[in-house]
Structure formats: structure tokens, C-alpha cells
Design a protein around this nucleic acid. Sequence first.
DNA 1: CATTTTGTCTAACAATTGTTAGGCAAAAAT
DNA 2: ATTTTTGCCTAACAATTGTTAGACAAAATG
Lengths: 203, 203
Amino acid sequence: MGENIKNISKTQIVLAAAKLFKQKGYAASSMRDIAAALNIEAASLYHHIKNKEEILDIICFDMATKFLSAIAEVNDIYFNAEEKLRKAILHHVEIITEDIDKSAVFLREWRSLPESALADFLLLRNQYENEFTRIIENGIEEDVFDNVDKKFAVLSILSSVNWINEWYSADGNMNANEIAHKISDFVMGGLRKKLVTDAHYKA
Amino acid sequence: MGENIKNISKTQIVLAAAKLFKQKGYAASSMRDIAAALNIEAASLYHHIKNKEEILDIICFDMATKFLSAIAEVNDIYFNAEEKLRKAILHHVEIITEDIDKSAVFLREWRSLPESALADFLLLRNQYENEFTRIIENGIEEDVFDNVDKKFAVLSILSSVNWINEWYSADGNMNANEIAHKISDFVMGGLRKKLVTDAHYKA
DNA sequence: CATTTTGTCTAACAATTGTTAGGCAAAAAT
DNA sequence: ATTTTTGCCTAACAATTGTTAGACAAAATG
């Protein structure tokens, strides 16, 4: 091969691209940027991938699959609603913190997917939300959760867990477990059924 | 003037741009796209604005100013911590729902600001977060809120209110007031001091 | 050893980008 | 009535974009 054998893999390309997509966004990251990050020429990328869109596609659907199989697992094994929700949140936080670059792209850049992929993607995202909704419903049936607006609760929870992507850094002093625990505690406060009213009302 | 006198205003440009920036992102929206949305030629835009960056600048800082003056007002007038937080959330939701396009840009596209503006922007955003943190601190001092992780509570709250931008549509069946009320109720559950333990633990 | 495959390269392309220059007619100011 | 200003236009620019074609040498395969 050319005097430079770098043997870049598709995985490396996706990783480097994810890092750039997170920093500058999909549209503002050029193929030449991605190539430069890997010390190769832009044209060489096409030996490994079909086109730029494929990279975004891979990132978005890989992550979607991760999230979906995690929640499927939680819903399969039996836990009561609170345990289920806590596990679901934990897995979610784990997936995000394991790869902040790719999850940033999953959370923000999916809008740049080509139309057909976008439709599929939104289906998956909806499916994920529905699994969470089911957990909340369980909790209400089990009389453990207050009869809250389900859709609302799910969106509040998901937005909270997703937001960690904005400030989490691997070298920080909190791990996924601690983060998940704190979020769960906070969220559970808003969900749990209260037999006796809060201090606020007692006073 | 040329047989076409359209008298486009800077405000119209910003509005049309915001709509596009929300849909396709800043980088993927061209000056020609913006111009086409206003039925003029791209070059004509430069009669009203300095360059593309200025549009993003205006949107981001206009919104930041709105948010900051709203919370300043809340913190000026005396309310107890819970009232303050509820008012702050209400104003936040109002600002978002009043202009979903511009607030989407404020929430997502600020990353594309040129470096110097970006630094200023982040300062304002931090300032806003700090005002919220002060409210939580007040609540803890007043012994109305649980001694939660302040930073965490603020980020959870803000992520929840910001998320409404993703699904809110003006023609939907919820107004800003109802949305703010629901979020506040949910959030307050996680914050309020609990004298007697929850039903869950009583059982 | 001969051949094919693999992974890079250079060079080039057509399209699109943000932006500027200069023209021209209507409206406003003198 | 004349001049200036305003708000648009067409045309063009240099740079950058995603992508393709084709060469070439190392590695793998026969």
C-alpha cells in the first residue's frame, strides 16, 4: 500500500466524527475535518463508508439500539415500578456517560438525518419513551406513584437525564451510579405517593 | 426603488432566520434560504445586517436578555422561595412558548456563535443558572426545601422547562400557565421538605 | 512467484457557500 | 425640481463543500 499504512477502521471514523459532530455540529463538520482528525485524506474515508450521512446514521441508530435494549432488559426482569424506574435511569446514565460524544450526536444531531432515516429514528425514540411511560403506569397501578400526568413525568425525567450530557466529563468526580442515584432521588420525590402532606403544608 | 419594494425589516429577517435555524440548524441554513423565505435575493439581506453571524448573535442575546430580566424581576419582588421558583418557572415557560423558533435557536444553536460572543453568552447563561440556584438556597434556608444538591436541582429543573421547546406547539391544547403549573408541581415534589415519610415507606 | 485485494494517495469535479461591487428606480429630503 | 437616500437587484468572487476517478504500493492469497 502507499508508504502510509494507517489502517483506519470504520469504528475509528465514527468515533472521530462523533467528537467533531459534538463540537461543531454535523453540518459544520466537513469530511476533510474528520479525515484530518485521523491523519488521512478526505477521499480515503470513502474506502470505509458510503458517504457522510452514513456516519450520522450509524451513530444515531447504534445509540438508539443501546437505549432500547437496555430498557427492554429492565422491563423483562421483574422489579416493582420504583426499582424499574431507578434501573432504567441508571442504564440511561451509563450509556450516556460511556460515550458522551456519540450520545451528544444522538441527542442533538439526529435532526440532520435524511428524511427516511429520520422517520425510523423517531419511531425508535418514541418506542423508548413508551417503555418509560409503561413503568410510570405500573407505578400508578401499584399505587406507589401519584396519579401524575404520565407523558409529562416521562418527558421531565428524560430531559433531566439527557441534560447530563451537557456537563458530564469523564474526568469529573461523579460516576454514572452517583449521578443516576441523585436524579432518581429527585425524580422519585415528584412521583411517590404522599400519604401525609409535606412539611410545608403541616406548618 | 426597483419595481419590487418589499421593505423587509431586520426583525423579519431575524424571525425568518430563526424559523430556518430551528428546522435545519444554523450551519445548514444558507443566506439564500433565508432570503428565499422572505422573497428577496441573498445579497439584499446585507442591506439590513452585517453578516450571517449577526443574525445568530441577535437571536441568542435577545433571548438571554429576556430570560435574565424575567428572573431579575422575580428575585426583586419579594416572594417566599416556593413562590419565587413557581414564578421563575412560569416566566421561563412563557418566554419559550412566546417564540419557539427563537428559543430553539437560543437553546441549541448558540454553539455556532463565534468564540468571543460564545464566551459572553455562556456568562449570561451561567448568571441565569445562578439566580435559580439562589432561589433554591433561599428555600433550604427557609427550611421549605429539602437539603438537596442545589446544582443538580437547578439543572434538573432547567432541563425540564427547556425540553418543552421540543414538543410545544402554539396550536396545542396547553398554554404556558398550565405547562408551568404541571412542571412546578412535579419539581416541587422533589424539593419540598418531607416531615413524614412517603406512603411507600409507611407500607 | 504471480495475482488480487486493500488502503491510501493526488487531482479534479460541480455545487454551494458567504459576501462584495455596482447598478437602478422609487421615495424622501432639500 | 433636483439631489440624496433607501432597498432592492444582477453578477461575480474565492473558498469550501461532498464526492469520484484513477494511480500506486504494500499485504494477502493463490
